[in-house]
Design a binder for these strands. Sequence first.
DNA 1: CAGTTGTTATACAAATAATAGAACAGATTT
DNA 2: AAATCTGTTCTATTATTTGTATAACAACTG
Lengths: 129, 129
Amino acid sequence: MFIEIEPDSAIPIYLQLAQQIMEGIAREELAPETPLPSVRAFAADLSMNMHTVNKAYHYLEEKKMIEIIPKKGVFIHKDAVRSATAEEKIRMEEELRPILAEALCLQISREELAAMIEKMVREIREGSK
Amino acid sequence: MFIEIEPDSAIPIYLQLAQQIMEGIAREELAPETPLPSVRAFAADLSMNMHTVNKAYHYLEEKKMIEIIPKKGVFIHKDAVRSATAEEKIRMEEELRPILAEALCLQISREELAAMIEKMVREIREGSK
DNA sequence: CAGTTGTTATACAAATAATAGAACAGATTT
DNA sequence: AAATCTGTTCTATTATTTGTATAACAACTG
């Protein structure tokens, strides 16, 4: 799994890490039950602090995307790929909202928006940047 | 224009304000050239600090959604409703990316995603929460 | 002239982000 | 059994972001 962190991004590095792991799950490169590196090993590999990796892990655990088993290790959640709950859909809608408001101002048509989404889904699936 | 700020939200209040103004533009309640309240008046109205409103204004100015004319006032940008540039589309795609990764994990179908988008667009257009 | 405008400067408090080192207790490996 | 590895917890420090607070400036408006 290739992780690429941009230190100067406006997005905190713990979030970048969490998002890229989630992309790995989405593209099924990281299947359920797959073990993730230990916080120390991952931190060393990515040249960051153990606590930063730990924060990314707990962010993903909160989203039920990974399972943290103390003293054992961290694994992709058994139900990482699942049907969204009503609550999860509402949260997603709220995240979409400001982006859609901007899209309306910028006169992005439904067709073009659909095309942008297809493009990004393809990139996630391919693991390309 | 009704603005509702949630002080305990994870989203900074200056961003909440900026996003709700952008929604007002998207729903054409705030037409180009329309004046916005002064930083002081708006801050008093929303019970927040002048600098916080100022920060929201500059965020929107950066996005070319409003025009700040020193010593005169703040107005909805003449071209607030316009065709997106290539750069603007790329930024929007990058914002969509982590949401789509989660949507893939949560097995949101293209049809359901389209329905969610239609729902949020409708809510923005209606100005409902 | 008085009031309003966005701007700038300084200051402060709180929260967040990131790093650092150490220790703990349970699991695994040798 | 000993050594190693695991996530956890604790304390600490630094830097940045967020939000509030005052004050003053210069230009525009009534």
